[in-house]
């Protein structure tokens, strides 16, 4: 079991309020991702749950039990750090066994758990190496191994993949998702990469300046963003925003349309503009189009569209794919 509840959690560092007031319900077994720009308080929120920081006010409950003042060890959570934080003087085996040694588990149980974790994470051949003799991806797996042997109530990850190269990041992303499917343990995962958030999460918490902008499933956030911040943060390339007369024509302060929801035609269309740059990715083409009186818009077209730099094209939003926001940026 591992449900986590935050009730009006507030955190200040010496008078600087980093998290004003967050309430959140994380159900047992869910994969939750905290996503947001750098400095928005993701790590702080995770460390509050872990018990590495104390809440200034508010309560944190794990399985309904108030742990706001409990030490990290008493919360029975495991954490994987961005820096891996492996014990440099211990072998891989020693690192993975450490949490069990701390709870004085019997020798056979430790050996079995370590071998099990090593098998799951493909570390069996490396058990006797020191962390410094491992690659980044292997170190990350050791950190995960150390987290799973204790069968915690929940896993906490703080940007675990950000020190890995792009290819490895994709592979590890899958491994972590598979691990979640296998263990079905609650996971709270911090990242600033919205692709990681979209692909891994059951539910995403979008944070901005210590506030929850929206909490929901990846598709909900994509299809019904609550405000311009979420709309702009989720989805790649970013949503196009249009202000002024054109927005007013749709009865909004700002309208937004995603690049993949713009239909590109040789002529006609709602907006007509000149192609500034066309980026060919093979599968898709991103067209950056300058539209008179509106500004630059990005459109995602099929890989084989013929439009080039300097040509005039027409752009129209697909039916029902236009988002409208009020002056405060809230969805209408």
């Amino acid at each position: 079991m591992g449900s986590i509840t935050l009730e009006h959690v507030n955190k200040s560092f010496g008078g600087v309020e980093v998290i004003p007031d967050i309430s959140l319900e994380i159900a047992d077994g869910e994969f939750i991702v905290f996503v947001g720009p750098s400095g928005c308080g993701k790590s702080t929120l995770l460390r509050l749950i872990a018990g590495l920081e104390d809440v200034t006010s508010g309560r944190i409950l794990i399985d309904g039990e108030d742990v706001s003042r409990a030490a990290p060890a008493q919360r029975k959570l495991s954490m994987v750090f961005q820096s891996y934080a492996l014990y440099p003087h211990m072998s891989v085996r020693g690192n993975i066994a450490f949490p069990l040694k701390m709870e004085k588990a019997p020798r056979e149980k430790i050996d079995q758990a370590v071998n099990n974790a090593a098998a799951i994470l493909n570390l069996t051949d490396y058990l006797d190496r020191k962390p410094r003799q491992l690659s980044g991806g292997q170190r990350q797996r050791v950190a995960i191994g150390r987290a799973i042997v204790r069968q915690p109530k929940a896993f906490l990850f703080d940007e675990p993949l950000s020190n890995l190269d792009a290819a490895l990041r994709v592979a590890m992303r899958l491994e972590i998702s598979e691990l979640h499917n296998k263990l079905k343990t609650t996971m709270v995962y911090v990242t600033h990469d919205q692709v990681e958030a979209m692909t891994m999460a059951d539910k995403i918490v979008v944070l901005n300046a210590g506030r929850v902008e929206q909490f929901g499933s990846p598709l909900e956030l994509y299809q019904r963003p609550a405000n311009t911040f979420v709309a702009g943060f989720i989805g790649s390339p970013r949503m196009n925003f249009i202000d002024g007369a054109e927005a007013a024509r749709h009865g909004a302060h700002t309208i937004g349309v995603r690049p993949e929801h713009l239909v590109v035609t040789p002529e006609g269309g709602d907006w007509s503009g000149v192609v500034k740059v066309s980026e060919h990715l093979g599968s898709d083409t991103f067209l950056h189009v300058d539209v008179d009186g509106i500004g630059a818009l990005t459109a995602r077209a099929p890989g084989d569209v013929p439009f080039r730099h300097g040509e005039t094209v027409g752009l129209s939003p697909m039916n029902g794919r236009l988002y409208r926001f009020d002056a405060q940026g809230l969805a209408l």
Binding site: A50, L52, A71, P72, A73, L77, S78, M79, F81, S83, A85, L86, Y87, P88, F98, P99, K101, M102, E103, R146, R150
Partner: peptide
């Protein structure tokens, strides 16, 4: 690195264990 000490705390080490083993 403080991270390593925090990792030990998360792994259930008491202050005494943290000092001795890490």
């Amino acid at each position: 690195p403080v991270d390593i000490l925090e990792a030990a705390r998360m792994d259930g080490a008491s202050l005494r264990q943290e000092v001795i083993y890490v």
